[in-house]
């Protein structure tokens, strides 16, 4: 009886999952593997080999990797500092870090666009201090900046969670046995936070790889990522089949990243458990 009730409660979610996840996925697969007149073809998938698409894919991977690395370098020390803070209400500090995420990311990126603009806030301050204007906007650097800004919390949280779970006893024991801070860090802390690092990497890398709005807004249309190519094939070129083919290729990349996480994170101890 109880089971039926539970299944009944899952009903709305089932409708949601079918209508907005499975159905669109099926449609993408259909468009990807069939051409306009409905015959089976692999041309849409093969279009990833087109030099333009390859280049965009390469740039997406490159910016994705750079963004992930920067996030990792920023987030790891930050998570350590957060973890070692001896404040009563540590969750409040974490909450403060999460706060910006509650605002729509598009708005935050638009705000950065205004800040970094030629006559924007940043340049006005620099000029009034007698310094040179910086023109970062509409370059790949600006896109990486936007990605890092947007996805950093996704790196901090899982690492912080993994770190908070390390028992202080282990560290004390290591010290008692004569390990210096350096050894403790590499032999205890890092190995015990690997699952957090891996889920952080995936949670940053996947959205960075597939993003198109950030490159559109901060790249000024001059930075063409694979996401932008897909968006343009749908919205401008009316080439739904090629767009779907490329989406499929991108999905394969995403799935590979997911598989890597699962391999490292078998026990499900990573940060994803928090979400």
């Amino acid at each position: 009886m109880n089971r039926i009730k539970q299944q009944f409660l899952a009903g709305p979610y089932l409708v949601w999952i079918i209508g907005f996840i499975l159905l669109p996925l099926a449609m993408i697969l259909y468009y990807a593997f069939f051409n306009e007149d409905g015959t089976f073809t692999l041309d849409n998938i093969a279009s990833i080999a087109d030099p333009v698409n390859l280049k965009a894919m390469g740039l997406s991977l490159e910016l994705g990797v750079i963004c992930t690395l920067i996030c990792l370098l920023l987030a790891y020390p930050l998570a350590m500092i957060l973890n070692n803070l001896h404040i009563k209400n540590q969750s409040f500090v974490v909450f403060v870090f999460m706060l910006p995420m509650w605002m729509n990311f598009m708005l935050r990126i638009l705000a950065w666009k205004l800040l970094l603009n030629k006559n924007g806030v940043l340049n006005t301050i620099l000029l009034s201090l007698g310094m040179e204007r910086i023109t970062i906007l509409n370059t790949p650097a600006a896109v990486v900046f936007g990605m890092v800004y947007d996805y950093l919390p996704f790196m901090i949280l899982p690492i912080y969670n993994a770190m908070a779970r390390i028992k202080k006893d282990y560290i004390e024991a290591a010290h008692d046995l004569g390990a210096n801070n350096f050894t403790v860090f590499f032999k205890i802390i890092v190995p015990l936070t690997v699952s957090g690092i891996i889920s952080g990497i995936v949670m940053v890398f996947v959205p960075a790889l597939t993003s198109f709005a950030i490159s559109e807004l901060l790249g000024g249309g001059k930075v063409l990522l694979i996401g932008n190519i897909i968006e343009e094939s749908f919205m401008q070129g009316m080439q739904w089949n090629i767009g779907s083919g490329l989406s499929f290729v991108l999905m394969v990349f995403v799935m590979i990243s997911m598989a890597i996480t699962n391999a490292f994170d078998k026990d499900g101890e990573g940060g994803t458990a928090v979400w």
Binding site: V52, K222, V223, L224, E232, S233, G237
Partner: peptide
Amino acid sequence: SDEAAAYLNHLWQVLKSQL
């Protein structure tokens, strides 16, 4: 035509994938 549009779109992407 759809083919011409696709060609034009391709040129456009070639242009913008310089970076």
